[in-house]
Design a protein around this nucleic acid. Structure first.
Lengths: 136, 136, 136, 136
DNA sequence: GTGGTCTAGACCACA
DNA sequence: GTGGTCTAGACCACT
């Protein structure tokens, strides 16, 4: 997996870059682009291709290592863990987080379940893909 | 609007306080608790009741003034703008932002519309899952 | 002069109201709408017709009294001074202030006299009256 | 842009400091001293060299960021935006604002175009009249 | 080192 | 009383 799909270089200035990088890995995992035991780009390579400081990538990898998603082999680089259950847990967390956050936000705005579905349908019809690369 | 519903004093440390205050006003607007031409609490009052510095409230009000949602009268306080269209626009933006962000996030995770609905229903049944670590 | 031309109620929020009121009197003087010994509206009347606090009008009149432009007769109201030289001085000051401020601003932006004229001509052709009531 | 022309430390007490700082940047832009992608002084540096608080500089930069003229890179500093069109727009706005304000003011004083030119010429001859009390 | 946020407290202008 | 500005100084996150 040396040549990951090239990521957009644009980062949202409202969130730290390293967090956004972690999120991108999470999404690649959920979407199936990445899977167990894959090697991920070296810190230097990814820093260059994203145009950010190596420290930033290091911080992102450090976070993923702490959460048990990746591990490093000295001199070999970083790898996704092999255990399927760990990967599965991360996937579910990512999805669940998105859904829960959305639901609690809509409810705090006074929307009940029916209205939430209605609002969603409206946006699905008209809006279409915003940035989503619906690689299902 | 003399007696606003008392707000929680607890702020999420991951986000700036003034942003959370702005969001609370946005929600009050969407839910109908606030409406056009209402006077909102004075900077000093809100600072005391929320237990934060006056400067923090001022920053929040400044942001809302910038976005055209409120305006200040020297010596009189801050008021929601009268134009219904402006308020309506803010309401729609708040809701739309939440929906669009959620949709694009789910799609980038490889979910199509049907799967999104399915995932939502699962979480709605489960009910009050706050943290979203529904990792079975 | 009980019925002055009705003024716009809209004030520029970036400047204090009482200053803008003083400026409006100055302009009325320069344009000839007001002249020596004219009676100007009572504080209460003007406050009502402009929709501002009486204190604000009082402050404006106080400023004009200090500068020698108006004076009060107990129980009779405020009047423009009779001395033509005083009025003439105010007129010239108002005009001169506007011109000098404009010139120094344009020069600090790197415009020489020729370019200033050029820029002016451009705006005179296209722009037309913005708010100006060219009552010559 | 490592060596900006040293600015005067004196500020006009009638206007807020942060606004005057913004105006100085605008002028530097119009006069060509600043241009696209230039790095501007760090908040701390400018605060020291102008003898004001860092918060005051931050407020000024915040305003310019809001208007789209500059942007911040965390840990890197502030930069003028690259897009020439944005810069050009700011330049034109600055000049246009000055001219339009002057024209509408003079017209509201009863001056037509010819008289405006005449008045200007008078002041240009006289030269360095700063305070504008040319009351002869 | 950079910017971002927050606090405590001051002074002013305005109503 | 209201908002508007400024200061001094602190802590945090990011590079």
């Amino acid at each position: 997996m040396l040549h990951m799909k090239v990521w957009q270089t644009g980062f949202d200035p409202r969130q730290s870059i390293y967090e956004q990088i972690v999120q991108r890995f999470h999404r690649s995992l959920v979407s199936g682009e990445l899977s167990g035991a894959d090697r991920i780009p070296s810190i230097r390579d990814l820093a260059v291709s994203l145009g950010v400081n190596t420290n930033t990538i290091q911080r992102a990898y450090q976070e993923m290592e702490r959460s048990g998603l990746i591990y490093s082999k000295r001199g070999m680089g970083f790898f996704i863990v092999e255990e399927e259950q760990v990967i599965e847990k991360v996937k579910q967390e990512v999805v669940s987080q998105a859904v829960v956050r959305f639901l609690s936000e809509m409810r705090s705005l006074g929307f009940d379940d029916a209205k939430i579905f209605e609002e969603l349908k409206n946006h699905m019809k008209g809006g279409g893909d915003q940035d989503g690369s619906a690689n299902g």
